[in-house]
Amino acid sequence: MNVTIDKYAYATIDPSCGELVEFQALDADVSESCVASEVVASPGPLQLMKGVYLHLCEHHLGGERPLVRVRTHSDAPPGSGLGSSSTMVVALVAAFAEYLSLPFGEYEIAQLAYQIERNDLGLSGGKQDQYAAAFGGFNFMEFYAEDRVIVNPLRIKDWIWAELESSLVLYFTGVSRASAKIIDEQSRNIKEGRSDSLDAMHRLKVEATQMKESLLRGDLGRFAEVMQSGWQAKKQSASSITNPMIDEIEELAFANGARAAKVSGAGGGGFMMFVCDPADRLRLVRALSGAGGTVYDTHFTHHGASSWKLG
């Protein structure tokens, strides 16, 4: 189960000023210009841009490589656990589809983003982030074999939407982490037959359904219980998901009104999310603000990736 928030990834594409293809990661202050035939998706801040460019050129433009300038930036810091990398790939695919007049819908954009990030570039991870960014809003997602995905939009009543938004606190620990290492450990535990890791995964699957049901009913007390149970299960899937810093922040939060906690994304750092009674929100925010990180003011959004052309 997933919901999008008002933190965005941005991609701008326009014709190159010269005879080169230009890539610019504006927030990282990194840029590169090269001959179109020499574009290679090597690791680094420009890897995602180049990966999307190369995939679309090869599979949708018959090998043609247009001379373009690609610029990106993101509201979320890298390694944050908010799905910033996958969201950026979705933004790039949507921007290129608009620029090249390719007839992609949400499913096509999400699946392409997944293929580019996971298969072409070999970056470890799942696929819920791509579908969340493409569709937007509250969604219950089902993943099956052979890349079959069903995204079920949830009709959340306005008062439930407002109450949950008022109950959530998003806190950036200030520590970025490499999600691939944690995901690789989870995968390795499953392949090696670690029963505790496999049991944790099964619990998380069941709790996704329980969380959906409690949210649709507006039972936010049960929602918090399920979220906390899911966090305990998640910590069993890999040893590096939590650490002393995360444990200390969690303890501080519970001493100041938190009813549930969770580390976003793979874990190990990045953002932590807490559920509290809205009346305890200010106390919790003040406590977390004194812990060295940053509390982010966020709101849920109804819409996913969008693109447009300037005349």
Rank of each mutant, 00 (worst) to 15 (best):
V39P: 05
E32G: 02
G79C: 04
S31L: 08
S31E: 03
R69C: 15
L82D: 00
G44P: 02
C57E: 11
K50H: 05
H55R: 09
G44R: 04
V70E: 07
A36S: 13
T72L: 05
G51F: 02
S33I: 04
H59Q: 09
P77S: 15
E38P: 00
G62S: 03
V39H: 14
E58H: 02
L48S: 06
P78C: 11
D75S: 12
A76Q: 08
V52S: 01
H60P: 02
R71M: 11
P66H: 06
P43R: 04
L46F: 08
E38H: 11
C34K: 10
L67T: 12
L46Q: 05
E58F: 05
G81E: 06
P43N: 13
L61Y: 12
R69N: 08
G81Y: 07
V35P: 02
G62C: 10
G63L: 10
V52A: 07
C34R: 11
S74E: 11
G62K: 13
L67S: 06
R71G: 08
P66T: 04
T72A: 15
S33Y: 07
L56D: 09
S80K: 11
A76M: 15
G79A: 06
T72P: 01
L82W: 06
R69K: 12
Q47V: 07
L56N: 01
E58V: 04
V52P: 06
H55K: 09
E32F: 04
L54W: 00
T72C: 13
R69V: 06
E32C: 03
Q47R: 14
S33F: 02
Y53E: 10
K50W: 05
V40L: 06
K50A: 01
